[in-house]
Write a protein that binds this DNA or RNA. Sequence first.
RNA 1: GCGCCCAUAGCUCAGUGGUAGAGCGUUUGCAUGACACGCAAAAGGCCUGAGGUUCAAUCCCUCAUGGGCGCACCA
Length: 706
Amino acid sequence: MPSEFDKPYDPKEHEDKIYKLWEESGFFNPDALPSGRDSDTKSRRSPTKTFTIALPPPNVTGSLHIGHALNATIQDILIRKKRMEGYRALWIPGTDHAGIATQNAVEKELKKQGVSRHDLGREEFLEKVWEWKEKYGNIILDQLKKIGASCDWSRMRFTMDQEYQKAVSAAFLHYQKKRWIYQGERTINWCPRCSTSLSDLEIEYKEEDGKFYYIKYGPLTLGTVRPETKLGDTALAVNPKDKRYKQYIGKEIEIQSVDSSVLRREAPKLKNIKIKVISDHAADPEFGTGVIKVTPAHDLADFEIYQRHPEIPILRVIDEKGRMNNNAGARYEGLKVVEAREQIVSDMQKLELIEKIEDYKHNIAACYRCGTILEPLLSKQWFLKMNELAQLAVKDVKKGKVKFHPKKWEKVYFNWLDPPVGGLKDWCISRQIWWGHKIPIEGVNDVLDTWFSSALWPFAILGWPEKTKDLETYYPTQVLSTARDIINLWVARMVFSSEEFLGIPPFSDVIIHATILAKSGQRMSKSLGTGVDPMTLIEKYGADATRFGLIWQAMGGQDIKWAEEHVVAGKKFCNKIWNASRFVLGQCPPSSKSDFRSQKKSNFFPSGKTPADKKILSQLQKTQKNIDKLIEKYDFGKALHILYGFFWHDFCDVYLEKFKNNPNPEVLERVLKESLKLLHPFMPFVTETIWQKFGDNLLMIEPWTS
RNA sequence: GCGCCCAUAGCUCAGUGGUAGAGCGUUUGCAUGACACGCAAAAGGCCUGAGGUUCAAUCCCUCAUGGGCGCACCA
């Protein structure tokens, strides 16, 4: 027995070597796959039979987290199975430039040296980002190799590489020609920290304990959580049906307010001002006092009121940095929003303009990249019309051309694209950062939303807008596997982009995999230290065990609370496979290995004649069918449970234990060989390592079932 | 506020219209010609609560409770 076939299986001994073997074979590139096998005259790999997956490009800022590991495993299972089935299986990897996230990361690093991006200027800063990307951007892909991902690295793409930039420009110009892109002045979500606009999807809501201030406006009283925006009020609104306030509608009322021209060091003073009362359905008679203040420049809802009542003025009192500007008056100018709030509240209290203050729990919008509280701001931005595009995306799922697994996620998709109330707002595609695709219009400095380029991913990586051979051969893709939080941010936008530019859906099946939660049942969080690093798991238990643990737990896409025990089980299982193989090999020495490999269908029932032989062979056959069916249904967890039960219990505990004194080598070989194939997509390293003991062929391209 | 999901063994989860399973953990044997990362056994659950449908419910329906998540302009 070869010395490296030692008792316990040690993944570290084998995994890197095996990965190198695969890479050197060139078979990750489907163009290099053999077109048929000598033992099989039917051409297994007809050029038309392709199977493509576009890897959701990880951000260059990131390192692999446990969710990536699960997602990569799922995709690798599909790709490996299809490759064994004879498809030209292509899995295209790449990375995303991740505009805001990457810019933030680089700025943070520069800050350590006391440098800001403004010190460097745009050109030099971008050079730094590129340097940073070259240095760190591919770490995550190396981590994918560690878990065994069989991507075609020769086709690796980056959302900012030259070819990809062409695709982005082409898409932009196409939309522009259709007049779906326009510039407009709107109140949008603004992150004062990142100093850029954000789309409606790039928001996270945080619950906050705030205060609800009841402020006197002459004869009226109204409630607000943001008294500082009072300085930008240009109207009051009441509901047209609200009888209490009917008499005021359409009238200008005179109210006493804070005199904002009084300097801060002086005592606050009252000032009489006039303000118009309008009627609008946005005012809910049931809530607060039924009167609302309208601050169109700093509130998204108020801006909508303004759009319905264009006669009211707009007054901006907050700047891009989140500070009060000179419109706010000398008393408040330069104060941060929160400071201004404290100041104005104290002023109003002194002037007896505040009736009462209540505790109030509410959700506030925060930046999805840095967590800073967003400041709605009137701003000139570029928008992409969404009506028709959204309908393209809706149509594909409604018609079943794109299917979600599990199906329930359709709801999230439809809920955004085709909301039950209101409509889908146009997509704010401009960002005021430096790192990204520049908007291809002369004199415009803004860059495009990162997701604008991500939306083109599945076809841009195959060469679109050029009519490349790859695009022709490998598009559309079949499966997209991703996390649920980017269903709208990314999946929906890929669907309509592909429909718009190529007239077909980008993929037919969308797998929304389980979200892996911390033991507490909450999302894993780096800052809380509840995250699990897949690299640590691989280091400790091996890649196969990690893959096993992930798939074993991620049943049916249901969220899971992470339990490392299952990775332990995976490690034990690797060992079991290893040792069973050692035993079988002992019964069938390497001299017979050519026989071992060339068994054909004709002797699926080798000379085994005992009832037990027949039983295990029929169990094997049943398992093969089952596993195949379950993988096709994307039911990976169940497939693995069944495989585990078959191999460990039916084969090892029952059959092997019973007959180890008097084994039937042919049956052993048959069962082991077929089991290794079934196991390979799940646990590629051990299975390939064992397979290598039998000959030179790669298990990776052995026929799935024979 | 609207919507979705979950509640089964100590832990993490499967599952079925006819009173339950896995992995890990625990207990007890066993160094049995691959494996102690093992083998053989065992303990452990009125399947969250209350109603309903049914001959029959852990599984179907309703409500409740607890937990998670998504959406929403309620200032």
